[in-house]
Design a binder for these strands. Structure first.
Length: 423
RNA sequence: GUGCCUGUAGCUCAAUGGCAGAGCGCCACACUGUGGAUGUGGAUGUUGUGGGUUCGAAACCCAUCAGGCACCCCA
């Protein structure tokens, strides 16, 4: 009994209660995606490693992917992200799709990481993208979708914020500081880590990268300048659009947001919960201008973001924002009085189901207290008893389990009685 | 891939080298045609797994697996 086979490291098992959280997130995601006119789609769950090799970043491909050889000797990967599949699928139908394309998806992904709070090796992720329009207003729409989601799950602007930056803006600032192109990636990564490092240690790392004092001071000036966006046309248009979309209270400019993925070229953004213990991004995304060309399509710009189910699930749980999920599998239990009446109970349950009710029948004769306890634990609202007395008179006893009241009615009136009790 | 912490009944935890326990839950009965409340009784286990030290290990040591925290990375 104790020798059970363990689950694979970093995966979760979805018992019914966890499943209702997953479905809740799916419904909220679908709701806000459809409200903005996005269509649901999906890609394959396994892909060749080559798809990710080009642009996803070395860490993701070489260290964090589940890659294995299939029986034919080819290297395949459990997808660690969706955007490259999106780019390929768009490129394949580039001449027949109607642009702008607005697509969303919610499905499983795998990353070979060290599991910890907010990080598992198997997770579900919402992806949503718009392709074919390159404008700050399109970027603003995606940010508004993100804000709309936060709002729909009850996360107020006081509780969750979306921080926005722009890679082109940062590049021009880096140009002004004479930071050479080959150091940009390392500098970006360092910027990403600034909030979780000791200031002195951060300075030391910056000097190790070869930044001189003037560049270091300049960099710190940039990262502390939260008005930097005002001199950038993309960002001023972005914030004007966000204002029109009614979500500006959710969004702030932050020059410290860089994001790791290589394919982002313009706007980048990440959402964080601001009050809780979890310092992980709820969602993140941005604009990618070159991805389609990289997988063999005509140049086409896109913008999108992704949200994993793990972090948002923990945040909503800890904030007490989750609704009480209705775990009742059925509203009515038909009890089985004894062996001779078993099939009469089955027939009754069947008639009730045909009228659209959710009805469970106790699967074998058992003592009534046991069957009532079962109904109670399953939080069912009504229990029916079809005993010898009722059967002899074509009747059935209908008990309201929350009030304790019980009435005996004719079998042809039982549906009305149940509907009245259920309200 | 690195460092630190943790692992005892279904759950939450106690027992710090000397008989493995409590609360909750579970089961039975009070109540053989009716659940929740209450009372009484009952069952829990190879102390994550494997090895070692010891007269004696849940406890100490080593390995391993899993979880957590911090790196790394990111949804």
């Amino acid at each position: 009994m104790k020798k059970s086979i363990q689950t694979v490291k970093g995966v979760r098992e979805f018992y019914p209660e966890a499943m209702s959280l997953r479905n809740y997130l799916y419904e909220k995601v679908r709701g806000v995606s459809q409200a903005f006119g996005y269509q649901e789609w999906d890609g394959p769950f396994i892909e060749t490693i080559d798809l990710y090799a080009a642009k996803s970043g070395e860490e993701l491909v070489k260290k964090q992917s589940f890659t294995f050889e299939d029986r034919g000797g080819d290297l395949v990967t459990l997808r660690p992200e969706l955007t490259p599949s999106l780019a390929r699928m768009i490129a394949a139908k580039q001449n027949e799709l109607t642009f702008p394309v607005r697509w969303w998806s919610f499905g499983p992904f795998w990353r070979y990481e060290q599991p910890q709070k907010g990080r598992t090796r198997e997770f579900f992720q919402w992806n949503i993208d718009m392709l074919g329009v390159n404008s700050p207003e399109a970027d603003a729409e995606l940010i508004a979708v993100a804000a709309g989601f936060l709002r729909s799950v009850g996360l107020s602007p006081e509780r969750a914020q979306i921080f926005v930056n722009n890679r082109r803006l940062m590049d021009s600032e880096f140009d002004a500081l004479d930071i050479p192109p080959e150091k940009r990636l390392d500098v970006s990564n360092l910027v990403d880590r600034r909030t979780k490092m000791e200031p002195a240690k951060w300075d030391e790392n910056a000097r190790d990268l070869g930044l001189n004092q003037i560049q270091l001071d300049g960099l710190k000036g940039i990262l502390g300048n939260f008005d930097l966006w005002k001199k950038n046309e993309e960002l001023t248009r972005l914030f004007a659009a966000l204002d029109a979309l009614g979500v500006s209270e959710y969004v702030k400019f932050d020059p410290n947001i860089m994001r790791g993925l290589l394919y982002y070229t313009g706007t980048v953004f990440e959402a964080f919960e601001t009050t809780g213990s979890l310092k992980r991004a709820i969602l993140g995304g941005g604009r990618y201008d070159n991805l389609l060309a990289d997988v063999g399509g005509q140049p086409l710009s896109g913008v999108g973001f992704a949200m994993g189910d793990v972090v948002i699930g923990i945040i909503l749980q800890e904030a007490g924002l989750l609704p009480d999920f209705d775990l009742t599998p059925a509203s009515v239990l038909v009890t089985v009085f004894d062996k001779s009446l078993l099939l009469k109970s089955y027939a009754l349950a069947s008639r009730l189901r045909q009228s659209g009710l959710k009805v469970m029948v106790y699967p074998e004769p058992a003592k009534l207290p046991r069957q009532f306890k079962f109904a109670d634990k399953m939080k069912m609202k009504i229990a029916l008893v079809l005993g010898p007395d009722e059967a002899a008179n074509s009747q059935v006893a209908v008990k309201n389990l929350s009030s304790g009241e019980q009435v005996v009615v004719r079998q042809d009136a039982v549906i009305d009685t149940i509907r009245t009790m259920l309200g």
